[in-house]
Design a protein around this nucleic acid. Structure first.
Length: 490
RNA sequence: CGGGAUGUAGCGCAGCCCGGUAGCGCGCUUCGUUCGGGACGAAGAGGCCGCUGGUUCGAACCCAGUCAUCCCGACCA
């Protein structure tokens, strides 16, 4: 069985780290809090990126690129925004090094910048400073831009993919003529994220609105998709913000309407990051390795030959290569693992570690009988199939796996979706494996904060399809109109 | 940023208490035999012991600082 992976039940956090490292997704780097995304991990990210990018283009967005550095003065224009990010910014103060006295290298004190540059923690400010020049008339709207970029947030505590100092993401920044249109855009992109999570990542998510306390700094409303990990903790997988006219006012971005009146434009921003990689790992994987949804798996099928004597190698190579070609022609991402350095058993374990959805094993017995052993990663189910007309069966199986791991994750979430009607019940549920807890809340930030202090649980969101239901706040007993979703979160 | 732990070959570790110039397993290289769930044998290569400074005739070992990682808090996507 898999070696060097801590079982989930023993230490979930360690299991996650072991998996990320052993499966070759990422590595620690020489820089605190910053990770190296390794080729296999990056290949998954590329698939995430390409799929999302296609969805953004379909919904009318164009990519652009804005600078990594933001003048400090830009940052201070939107007050709430500064407050939100001030404590986690990296700042560039100098632009030159020189040789030090002791033979080392030091910062040249002569080369101090007149105005310091902030390494972007997010790009609203520099983008809105630019939009001022791009937008004059209603004819320039809507402006639908996305950028794929790295950002830096100086976090106290980091974890591979889930929270790193530097991370990769996409940030959409749009400008609209009306509030309604901007809200619609915010919701539309939330739908895109929802669909992406379900269809590509096999990840069931809950769409909702953040409370004031959890809202993005500078936003009027923050929408989110929240998902549940196997340890019962919630993880925010994506956000979409309705920014109102906050940034337009801060950067004086106005347009002339059809009626000739000048008005501030309405804004949205939305993003998902490499954190999705963490969600992907934690949602589906097991003690033997990753379990990847076929649509995101860099390798969907691996063919492993089982030799017996040197003559069989030639025959198996030919048969394997033929199958590889057949599957590749059918659009399957396939690898023929004919490397003679390892035996089949090793390759089996390795393919499980890497989360390859389907493993095909081909031995002499199969050559004689025209069969092939097919093993799916998600259920471990072994099947003996006929080699003839294999591709359509494999494609069908890949689709079944995609659906199955979604269903499995959905079942898990449903099993861990609780309702609490009293404080005792609320605490008991949190102590018994967590999950989402739907409970009444009096709507105040004070109560929200108190609950967090006492239980570490936060309000993940107010679900979009939330029914109106009168009740009483689980903490204060004050009247409440609806339940909200609590959970301990990443 | 506080509390705790760790850092010795690519990986996992022993050696440190009691200072005398480094070892085990896996992996790697070569050759051979193997091959239906992490093969076996033989021969090799690989380390200024995280880094910097101090104590000492002599430091992986003792002391100080520093950097990094992990766990627990405060902060957050």
């Amino acid at each position: 069985m898999a070696k060097e992976i801590t079982p989930r039940t023993q230490d979930y956090a360690q299991w996650y780290n072991d998996l990320v490292l052993r499966a070759g997704l990422a590595d620690y780097s020489a820089v605190r809090g910053c990770m190296i995304i390794k080729p296999y991990g990056f290949a998954i990210w590329e698939r995430i990126r390409d799929a999302l990018d296609g969805m953004f283009k379909e919904t009318g967005h164009s990519n652009a690129y804005f600078p990594l550095f933001i003048p400090k003065s830009f940052f201070s224009r939107e007050a709430t925004h500064v407050d939100g990010f001030a404590k986690e910014c990296a700042i560039v103060t100098h632009y030159r090094l020189r040789n030090g006295k002791d033979g080392g290298i030091e910062v040249d004190p002569e080369a101090r910048l007149d105005e310091e540059l902030i390494v972007r923690p997010t790009s609203e400010t520099i983008i809105w400073n630019t939009y001022r020049d791009w937008i004059q008339s209603y004819r320039d709207l809507p402006l639908l831009i996305n950028q794929w970029a790295n950002v830096v947030r100086w976090e106290m505590r980091t974890r591979l993919f889930l929270r790193t100092t530097e991370f990769l993401w996409q940030e959409g920044h749009t400008a609209h003529a009306t509030a309604e249109e901007a809200v619609e855009e915010t919701r539309k992109m939330l739908e895109v994220y929802d669909r992406f999570a379900r269809e590509w990542m096999s990840l069931p998510v809950i769409k909702g609105v953040k409370t004031e306390k959890e809202r993005f700094a500078g936003a009027i409303d923050t929408y989110c998709i929240e998902t549940l990990m196997q340890d019962g903790k919630a993880l925010q997988a994506g956000t979409s913000h309705f920014l109102g006219q906050n940034f337009a006012k801060a950067f004086d971005v106005q347009f002339t309407g059809v009626d000739g009146e000048r008005e501030f434009v309405w804004a949205t921003s939305w993003g998902v990051s490499t954190r999705l990689m963490g969600a992907l790992v934690m949602a589906h994987s097991d003690d033997d390795g990753l379990v990847l949804p076929p649509r995101l798996a860099p390798i969907q099928v691996t063919i492993i030959p089982i030799y017996k004597g040197s003559e069989s190698q030639t025959a198996l190579r030919e048969a394997g290569a033929r199958l590889e070609q057949e599957l590749r022609s059918a659009g399957v991402r396939v690898q023929f693992d004919h490397d003679d350095n390892h035996r089949a058993g090793y390759k089996f374990a390795e393919s499980e570690l890497k989360g390859i959805p389907i493993r095909l094993a081909l031995g002499m017995r199969d050559l004689e009988q025209g069969t092939i052993e097919v093993v799916r990663r998600d259920t471990r189910e072994k099947m003996l199939m006929q080699q003839a007309d294999l591709a359509p069966k494999i494609i069908h199986l890949l689709e079944a796996i995609q659906v199955n791991i979604y269903q499995k994750a959905l079942d898990f979430r449903n099993e861990n979706m609780h309702r609490a009607d009293s404080w005792e019940e609320f605490e008991r549920l949190l102590d018994r494996g967590g999950g989402f807890i739907s409970a009444h809340w009096d709507g105040t930030s004070e109560t929200e904060e108190l609950i967090k202090e006492r239980t570490k649980a936060t309000i993940r969101c107010i679900p979009l399809d939330n029914p109106v239901e009168s009740g009483h706040c689980i903490l204060t007993g004050a009247p409440s109109r609806q339940r909200v979703l609590f959970a301990r979160a990443y």
